[in-house]
Amino acid sequence: MTTTTIDPAEFRKVLGSYPTGVCVITALDGERPAGMVVGSFTSVSLDPPLVGFFPDKSSSSWPLIEKHGHFCVNVMGADQQGVCRAVTARGEQKFVGVDYALSDHNLPIIANSIASIECELYSVTEAGDHWFVLGKVLRMEIVREDDPMLFHKGRYGGFAERL
């Protein structure tokens, strides 16, 4: 294997030039919602239906979600920056003002998200300073037809079609 030194700041800068969608991964921690914002969500397989994302190993939210064994991927709309801020808050402030309902799988589905994808934890694989999490899709739905939230160069935004 070749050893190459990559500057972490340059790595973030270069990869930050690639826009990503924004999702909130949710589960329950007892009676309280647990959640984290991710920009690494992706479809993985049709058969079986698998999706994936990459939580940081230092995340305090991921162990709570992993413990539940199930999670919901809430695809954020361009107008839901407030939801992202509330989910990234610390302690008692986390989820303040976030409207959600519990699904039949006992997962928090965030109101007005673009789509919700309920999953059973399929596997967790070490991937450097992150985990590669796969979920087997149990249920999914489009909640509303609207523009998704995007993350690009450290900022949240939306989609604009160029003609």
Rank of each mutant, 00 (worst) to 15 (best):
T5P: 00
I6N: 03
I6F: 13
P8K: 08
E10D: 11
F11T: 03
R12Y: 11
K13C: 07
V14S: 12
S17V: 05
Y18Q: 05
P19A: 05
T20K: 02
G21W: 07
G21D: 09
V22R: 01
C23Q: 09
V24T: 09
V24F: 05
I25E: 09
A27L: 07
L28I: 08
G30C: 06
R32P: 00
P33E: 11
G35M: 09
M36A: 03
M36V: 10
V37I: 14
V37A: 05
V38M: 08
S40L: 08
S40K: 12
F41N: 06
F41S: 06
T42S: 15
S43M: 04
V44H: 03
L46F: 05
L46A: 11
P48A: 03
L50P: 02
L50W: 03
G52M: 07
F53G: 04
F54W: 07
F54S: 11
P55W: 04
P55H: 04
D56Y: 04
S59P: 06
W62M: 02
L64E: 10
I65A: 03
K67D: 13
H68S: 11
H68F: 13
H68I: 00
G69Y: 07
H70C: 14
F71R: 06
F71H: 05
C72I: 09
C72T: 11
N74P: 03
N74C: 08
G77H: 02
G77K: 02
A78S: 13
Q80F: 06
Q80V: 00
Q81G: 12
G82H: 11
V83I: 14
C84Y: 04
R85K: 14
R85G: 04
R85A: 09
R85V: 00
R85N: 13
R85Q: 14
A86G: 10
T88L: 05
R90M: 11
R90T: 12
E92A: 14
E92P: 08
Q93R: 15
Q93K: 15
Q93E: 15
Q93T: 07
Q93S: 14
K94Q: 15
K94M: 05
V96G: 01
G97D: 10
G97T: 10
D99R: 15
D99T: 00
D99M: 04
D99W: 03
A101N: 09
A101G: 09
L102F: 12
L102A: 13
N106G: 08
L107E: 14
L107Q: 12
L107M: 13
I110W: 07
A111Y: 03
A111T: 12
N112D: 15
N112C: 07
A115K: 10
S116F: 06
S116P: 01
I117N: 02
I117Q: 02
E118Q: 14
L121N: 10
L121I: 01
V124R: 06
E126H: 06
E126D: 15
A127G: 15
A127V: 00
G128K: 08
D129S: 13
D129H: 08
W131Y: 15
V133M: 10
L134S: 13
G135W: 05
K136I: 01
V137L: 03
R139P: 00
M140P: 00
E141H: 13
E141I: 06
I142F: 09
E145P: 00
D147S: 12
M149T: 07
L150K: 01
F151Y: 15
F151A: 09
F151I: 04
H152G: 04
H152F: 15
Y156Q: 08
Y156C: 05
Y156N: 10
G157K: 03
R162P: 00
